[in-house]
Amino acid sequence: MTDLLALNSIRGKSGKDTLIGLLEAEGRKVFRVAFADVLKEMCAQVLAGGPGELATAYQRDMHKSIKDKPQSCLGISQIAPSSYQHWLRTTYWEEPSAPKSLRWHLQTFGTQYHREYLGKPDVWFDLGMREVRQGLEDSSYDHVVVTDMRMPNEYKGLLYAPDVKTIRIVRDWFIPGVDDQPYHISDIALMAHPFDALVVNRLGEPWAMLDQLKAQGVLN
């Protein structure tokens, strides 16, 4: 039976994708789902003014470390005109030309703009759950892994799935440019929620994450 592993981390680069790689290295077949994938595609196109080379470049960089670097071209006054940009101008009017990072736009576009301003708190969850159901219905997979469970509605909704385990991953070393940034609500919204397992990703010992999950009864 395919089980569901829902991963959470308070900071980025904590080792979620590394954990998936370790599962696959053991011969386990993994169906990966990221609620943020659709968000990244939509956000990149809005920033760029539509589909094209720039949007593709933005979307590609959203999966790399450069997403944490503020860039002048991502300042509110520099991105393509849109209803999102208009909302940013009225909300962050004091700093329209200040450099912004792709991560800042992803968080702002996904939460403050869509979830709060547009009143669509479940938009990313609903889109992601289509893929979760697809993976669970395919018995050829050992695990469906949600890599970015961040919000209370995602936590609550995933608990209804059969054979689900919630996992928090904590990295035990400091990464400049990531860990010195202010927390966003999507970083800490699940901080007080109970998890089935806590995994510490220790520097130089990524394989130990699997041992911890097995010791805590999440993996066989």
Rank of each mutant, 00 (worst) to 15 (best):
D3I: 09
L4E: 05
L5C: 05
L7K: 02
I10E: 15
R11T: 13
R11H: 15
K13A: 14
D17K: 12
I20K: 12
I20Q: 11
I20A: 07
G21I: 08
L22T: 01
E24Y: 05
R28F: 13
V30P: 06
F35I: 06
K40E: 11
K40T: 01
K40F: 09
E41S: 07
M42Y: 14
A44T: 02
Q45C: 10
Q45V: 04
V46I: 12
G49L: 04
P51F: 05
P51A: 07
G52F: 10
E53V: 11
E53K: 13
L54T: 10
A55S: 12
Y58R: 01
Y58A: 00
Q59K: 15
Q59E: 07
R60N: 10
D61E: 15
H63C: 04
D68N: 15
K69W: 13
L74F: 01
Q78K: 14
I79G: 00
S82E: 12
S83L: 14
Y84R: 02
Y84T: 01
Y84P: 01
Q85V: 01
Q85M: 09
W87D: 01
L88C: 13
R89D: 04
T91F: 09
T91M: 11
E94I: 08
E95L: 04
S97N: 12
K100H: 06
L102T: 01
L102F: 02
W104G: 00
L106P: 03
T108V: 12
E116G: 03
E116C: 08
Y117V: 02
Y117L: 06
L118Q: 14
L118R: 13
K120H: 12
D122H: 13
D122E: 15
W124E: 04
W124S: 02
V132Q: 02
Q134P: 04
G135F: 08
L136G: 01
E137Q: 15
D138A: 09
S139K: 15
D142G: 08
D142F: 10
H143A: 08
V144K: 02
V145M: 09
V146S: 04
D148E: 08
M149V: 10
M151T: 01
N153A: 05
G157N: 08
L158F: 11
L159Y: 11
Y160E: 15
Y160V: 05
A161L: 14
P162F: 10
D163T: 08
I167H: 01
I167T: 00
R168I: 09
R168T: 09
I175R: 06
P176K: 03
D179S: 09
D180L: 04
Q181A: 11
Y183S: 10
S186H: 08
A192R: 14
P194W: 13
D196Q: 05
D196V: 03
A197Y: 05
A197S: 07
V200M: 14
N201S: 13
E205I: 06
W207M: 10
W207I: 06
A208D: 15
M209Y: 05
L210C: 03
Q212K: 07
Q212W: 07
L213P: 03
A215I: 12
A215R: 13
V218W: 07
V218D: 06
L219V: 05
L219Y: 06
N220K: 13
